[in-house]
Amino acid sequence: MFGRRVHHLISEIPTGSICTLLEIPQGKIFRIVEIKGGPGLHRRLLSLGFHRGDRVTLDREAIMQGPVLVRNLTADTKVALGRGIAQKILVEPIGDNEG
């Protein structure tokens, strides 16, 4: 729905491939590009401190398709997200010099 990219963010980000939070390797730092899903979910994540541009890493994945543990480095919080929800958060890699 709001699939267009944010211009003021693009300039800072080195081009990389966009993927969902579920697809990234553990421990590497990524940046949130977009949060999809309905307004209800979107609002919850915003108020928990998940915004576009935040740096996140995937800390852990629980066994048997369980939830993922996401660390938000910008807010310095850890949040457990069900897979369906993690899938709605799009991220892209950032350079290794940061973090």
Binding site: L48, P67, T77, K78, A80, L81, R83, G84
Partner: peptide
């Protein structure tokens, strides 16, 4: 119909 887990893990 699960909305999926969203739970902050406190330190």
């Amino acid at each position: 119909s699960s909305p999926g887990l969203i739970l902050e893990i406190p330190s």
